[in-house]
Design a protein around this nucleic acid. Structure first.
Lengths: 173, 173
DNA sequence: CGATATTTGATATGGTCCATAACAATTATC
DNA sequence: GATAATTGTTATGGACCATATCAAATATCG
């Protein structure tokens, strides 16, 4: 597992001056063997996840939306009138960590906290008009630039199968 | 996306005292709609990855091996005689961050740094006998407790297809 | 040869994300 | 009406990621 986000430095040696090579007998291949690692679910899962998030960020560069922010906007749109605890917990975000995230979105006028009249402790979340507009544009970017690449890479039916399997793992593992 | 590691609190309300419900007309279902989120590759990918890592840690509790540590042991075993830079970079770990990781493994006598005689800057990495033994046990635990669950959940052929697709994403996305 | 650049492991440091404890305001419970 | 629970919030610490920098060793090139 492991896998960070930095690009490899493509350390292409000149090709001749190999190090510990006495004859042509044992040529240390200069490229490491991944071995069983390439079959480890966790390893490949994490690498794929990093790549996908990386691509997502590039696609969203014009809107400056992170995956987490996008997921919040999506969920608030689909579930208007819910409070912070509800939105955060279904996304797996702890309430304390959700505060700064919301502060950001609210400061950009993408969503708003409204004191509930029923329960004056809680903040009802709604998208602003600007938030709705941005989310609409974001969805288009995701569809045309992000998800479409998956279809090109795997094919439509494989992509659906992949998401289904991942959902199954996420829910039942 | 988003998704942290905490368990949901299973907020089961008593069932009757619903909040904003005037008639039986509009019953707010108390469970949020995920909507398009459940089809977002990044979202489901991250949730699955967290679950898999979580399960990995549980399976490895007796050996106290994290996914990152396990991947280092695997790679060093498969590529003995490589230095820190080579091992770290193929795992996507930056050299500075690899130091503490190795310090840990070395302090537990699982692997050792050996000053190279060819290039006295670099540290050759090898598994100790204890490291080899631990890795062997770790592989068995992964196979019997971790990967086997995937087979139960998805089936052998689906599992292979999943790993292949994830590899493709990791390498070509 | 010798001056300069590069590489290796390491340290320091800052950023982001995740997790827990604690708090005031409000509401629920008894 | 006293006590407990909930909501949003702050503070804080840990884990992981990324960059700059350093000394030692090596490579490069005049």
């Amino acid at each position: 597992m492991t896998v960070s986000k930095t690009a490899e430095k493509s350390s292409e040696k000149s090709g001749e001056a190999a190090k510990g090579r006495k004859d042509a007998a044992e040529a240390q291949p200069e490229a490491l063997q991944l071995g069983e690692l390439s079959e480890q679910l966790g390893y490949v899962l994490k690498r794929a996840q990093l790549k996908v998030f990386e691509n997502f960020l590039r696609c969203m560069a014009s809107l400056q939306l992170t995956p987490a922010q996008f997921s919040v906007l999506l969920l608030v749109e689909k579930n208007p009138g819910r409070n912070q605890t509800e939105i955060a917990s279904t996304l797996g975000i702890l309430r304390p960590n959700f505060v700064a995230l919301l502060d950001n979105l609210e400061s950009r006028d993408l969503c708003a906290r409204i004191r509930s009249t029923n329960d004056r402790r809680s903040h009802i979340l709604v998208l602003t008009d600007k938030g709705k507009a941005v989310l609409t544009r974001a969805k288009k970017l995701v569809a045309t630039k992000h998800e479409s690449r998956l279809n090109d890479l795997l094919g439509q039916s494989n992509r659906e199968a992949l998401i289904e399997m991942l959902s199954k793992i996420a829910n039942e593992f």
